[in-house]
Design a protein around this nucleic acid. Structure first.
Lengths: 137, 137
DNA sequence: CAGCATCCGGGAAGATACTG
DNA sequence: CAGTATCTTCCCGGATGCTG
């Protein structure tokens, strides 16, 4: 907990508010590696923990748990435990979660549509930088 | 790429592809703390470096530089240098950057509209967890 | 099968000082 | 004014081992 924090300043409110407001909450969730992918996967239907993990193939158990917990906490995902002999837990999107799917879809469409442009921009940028680095004189 | 992986199971291609594909690129940019805020600020019009920094109020010089460089590399932001006596650099959104603004707007609207629901879900979740922790017997 | 606890490494973000 | 360089700190994400 960093006991040695000399927290003197109570700085300014950071950006106007119509800039972030509640966006940060969403962005933070969108920003981490797995949340979006989980939402996308779940958009197709409910999945059990292992099935979910397998469908992502690359996520660790820990990360999946954390991700899914956060989504549950935010009311985007419902977690249902069936008290069977081998424990069985199902995850599914809530209505809120589904509504977010549309936005993610929009994001996907955009990035898909503009990927070439971004790639081109990057290539150009890298080239310029390479030139400037190669012959500075 | 994990050379020491005892990869027994020729895994699957990681999510279908229409899940991430190019989304990761966008998400990575959207995920970091400042990119979105910079885009939003620039959506209102071109700004010089210091003006931009001031409008964000909380970003360090370093972070702003890095953020803006990445956005420039991706072709979302155009950087114009005026060779005046006191160096003057203007940042403005490109057409590509402007098109992203719409999505960000959608995100903002969504998070604004659903903030109460998220807050409620969190409160409920926290409450349940508190109970379970308080009287486990 | 589902999930938690713990340890660890790497990259991102911040603060500061210096340059053109 | 705009930007780089350097150092430090922090948190995300991964790996492992244990429980119910």
């Amino acid at each position: 907990m960093s006991a040695g924090h000399t927290e003197v300043t109570a700085p300014e409110p950071v950006v106007s508010c119509d800039d972030d407001c509640g966006i940060r909450d969403v962005l933070d969730r969108l920003g981490d590696r797995w949340s979006v992918l989980v939402v996308v996967q779940l958009a197709a239907g409910a999945l059990r923990f292992n099935a979910l993990q397998r469908s992502l193939e690359g996520v660790s158990q820990r990360m999946l748990t954390l991700t899914v917990r956060r989504l549950e906490r935010d009311g985007l995902v419902r977690r249902t435990v069936y008290p069977t002999v081998p424990p069985q837990v199902e995850y599914e999107l809530t209505a809120l979660g589904h509504s977010l799917t549309h936005l993610v879809k929009g994001l996907a469409d955009w990035s898909l549509a503009n990927r070439p442009q971004i790639a081109a921009a990057r290539a150009e940028w890298d080239e310029e930088k390479a030139q400037q680095a190669g012959m500075p004189s």
